[in-house]
């Protein structure tokens, strides 16, 4: 199960390297082994629209020969900043969980 901020982080991280259209973003996330959009792929689009409205990504319409124009998303400066924050908070969370789950050494007997 993924939380909203996790899904945002996934989408933003995929767009970090290059501009992509919706289907390709879903494919890249699935290729990384993430199951976030496996069940309902349509879930991706509300996230993309929200991120676009928040100014974290920007959409451009790229004309295609013999086909309708394609909507391609790219990361904005705000999006890059947001991704850094999300990655940082994820690292902190991950470290905290790791330290909790790590096997504790038995206390030395007193006396």
């Amino acid at each position: 199960m993924a939380f909203r901020s996790d899904l945002d982080a996934l989408v933003l991280s995929v767009l970090q390297a290059e501009s992509l259209h919706g289907y390709e973003i879903a494919k890249r996330i699935n290729a990384k082994g993430e199951t976030a959009f496996h069940a309902k792929e349509g879930q991706l689009y509300p996230i993309l629209h929200r991120l676009e409205n928040e100014g974290k990504i920007q959409a451009d319409w790229i004309p295609q020969e013999g086909k309708p124009a394609r909507k391609v998303y790219r990361l904005t400066e705000t999006g890059k900043g947001e991704l850094e924050k999300l990655v940082e908070s994820w690292r902190e969370f991950s470290l905290a969980v790791d330290s909790l789950l790590a096997p504790t050494k038995p206390e030395a007997s007193r006396g």
Binding site: K40, E41, G42, P46, I47, H49
Partner: peptide, 18 residues
């Protein structure tokens, strides 16, 4: 089917568009 139900999908879209 894997894309989702139209009712739920449109609701999410509407929410995302404020």
């Amino acid at each position: 089917e894997t894309f989702g139900q139209p009712r739920k999908w449109t609701r999410e879209i509407l929410l995302s568009e404020n």
